[in-house]
């Protein structure tokens, strides 16, 4: 290669090189998790050898332990159920609310909007004690339902606020035209506004799903029955016993716990970027 060609090559591809440190920084912990998850216990604690090489070979025992000796599959399903139902509830409730707040200037609209926004700012560490009273009143304690009831407290404010941004950003002319053609206000929401806001809705879905998937505090305080627990809490309760850490299984679980969300992201990411472009940018 001549010097000139090297220069052109670098010029064209500099971004890939610049990205290397970021990718390393991002992925290293995951690589380390993957490695620990297939490492034998004996080697895990042996600090004398090369830390990057599995001298004693790989083992699938941690994955097997996780999948056969624990309720991992149940916890996974629980997390999936809770996150999905919470997303569904959130979307069903926040779409009409956001649309009303964005489109109709009725008295109190801005106060309600501000109120919704403020609730998003309250850290859940503060709320779990009084919330448990509500959970008990609803007789949902120690079950998935308690999480399905409480998680919307942090998903709905975010989702509503995000969607207000989206809806108010759409040109009114489209809906007005539809209404003149005899469509009702609600029909114009369903037939005109929603299709145009799919990116926004998907953005909201992704945020709410991630937040529910990883949420710890309510799950920690409200559900102690193993068969009803979600992944993060169950893993911490069952794989950390006092000062004994089941490192291999914990790491295996960490990888398995991020897989489904990553898959969803892989499919939705194009919408996600488009969604943010329309919503957040023009809030």
């Amino acid at each position: 290669m001549t010097k000139g060609r090297i220069q052109t090559f670098l010029k064209r591809n500099w971004a890939y090189f610049a990205l290397v440190p970021f990718v390393l920084f991002t992925l290293f912990p995951f690589a380390w998790m993957a490695m620990t998850s297939i490492e034998t216990d004996e080697e895990l604690y042996d600090m004398s050898g090369n830390a990057f090489i599995l001298e004693k070979g790989a083992t699938s025992s941690h994955y097997l332990f996780l999948l056969t000796k624990t309720l991992f599959k149940t916890w996974f399903a629980n997390s999936l159920i809770v996150s999905s139902v919470v997303v569904l509830i959130t979307i069903l409730i926040s779409i009409p609310a956001a649309y009303s707040l964005a489109r109709i200037k009725f008295p109190g609209a801005s106060t309600i909007g501000t109120g919704i926004f403020l609730t998003y700012l309250i850290p859940p560490t503060l709320l779990f004690i009084p919330l448990y009273t509500v959970v008990t009143f609803l007789r949902t304690a120690n079950s998935l339902l308690s999480l399905i009831v409480t998680y919307p407290t942090f998903t709905i404010p975010f989702s509503t606020w995000l969607l207000i941004g989206f809806f108010s950003n759409l040109p009114r002319e489209l809906e007005e035209a539809a209404m003149i053609d005899g469509a009702s206000w609600l029909q114009s929401l369903v037939k005109i506004v929603l299709p145009l806001s799919i990116p926004g809705v998907i953005t909201s879905v992704i945020f709410c799903f991630t937040a529910s998937w990883g949420h710890l505090i309510y799950a920690l305080a409200f559900v102690s029955r193993s068969s009803q627990q979600t992944l993060p809490v169950a893993l911490i309760s069952k794989l950390i016993r006092g000062d004994v850490f089941f490192w291999g299984a914990l790491m295996a679980a960490g990888l398995l716990a991020s897989v489904p969300v990553v898959i969803i992201y892989a499919f939705l990411l194009d919408y996600y970027v488009a969604g943010l472009t329309k919503g957040a940018m023009k809030f």
């Binding site: 991630t210 990883g214 809490v233 679980a253 990553v262």
Partner: peptide, 10 residues
Amino acid sequence: LLPWVIPTAL
């Protein structure tokens, strides 16, 4: 996006 997806506890 991976670091954002994995539950923080883990």
